[in-house]
Amino acid sequence: MTAHRLSVRFRYALHRSRTGQIALLAAIWLIGQAVVHVTGLPLPGGIIGLALLLFLLGSRLMSPLSLRRGANWFLAEMLLFFVPAVLAVLNYPQLLGVLGLKILAVILGGTISVMGVTAMTVELSGNWRARHAASRSGNT
């Protein structure tokens, strides 16, 4: 069996294997960690890995088919992996009192503002662009 045929078979197997893709994503993260360790960049390994993977996909060195199943699994089950961080609330029993209510007020007020401002900005700038494009094509 030639090296080419072996590599085709390997890719075909990888496209179907979620476990293999999960391992591949973890390997890219480890490369990112190693880059941070060696260069001392002020970014976490995950962000470096993300940039590396975008480069591999954008330059067509890697097909999204080799990663889609694994990536979808990570994104779908993401919540599980930060549960341990949420339990930190145990170290802050004062959050159950007045302080907690104040924080809740900041979160509710802040979230309503962010959602309102974001949605209206996108809606209005989208409308503006549509009108702009229409008037431009009307002139020509």
């Binding site: 999960i22 994503l25 973890a26 890219i28 993260w29 990112g32 960690q33 976490p44 390994g45 995950g46 962000i47 890995g49 993300l50 940039a51 993977l53 975008l54 996909l57 999204p64 990663l67 889609r68 694994g70 990536a71 979808n72 990570f74 994104l75 993401m78 992996f81 930060f82």
Partner: peptide, 12 residues
Amino acid sequence: VLGPVTVAFAVP
């Protein structure tokens, strides 16, 4: 595991 999760965001 949040590290590999960050990498996975490249696909979408």
